[in-house]
């Protein structure tokens, strides 16, 4: 249950960040509806943001592991 809450919090934070960053990039002038061009931009932006999250996560975890190894030597 703790694990579930953690995953939820993580997904929620990811959604909030994507919302903030991609709304800024893809909907510069909000109109009467979400245009199809804006929706395509949001889809792409969302995919890129999740890729970026993965790259950052990988780099960060690698770094932590390198540091903890070098401390043990």
């Amino acid at each position: 249950q703790v694990r579930g809450e953690l995953a939820m919090a993580n997904a929620q934070e990811l959604i909030n960040k994507i919302n903030e960053k991609c709304y800024l990039k893809c909907v510069p002038k909000p109109g009467a509806r979400l245009e199809s061009g804006e929706q395509q931009c949001l889809s792409k932006c969302m995919d890129r943001y999740m890729e970026a999250w993965n790259v950052v996560s990988r780099s960060y975890v690698n770094r932590i592991q390198r540091e903890s190894q070098s401390q043990m030597m």
């Binding site: 953690l6 934070e13 960040k17 943001y49 970026a52 999250w53 950052v56 996560s57």
Partner: peptide
């Protein structure tokens, strides 16, 4: 760790 990843992704994005 996840919180740091969120914050780093924000900055580096």
């Amino acid at each position: 760790i996840q919180q740091t990843v969120h914050s780093l992704t924000d900055t580096c994005w």
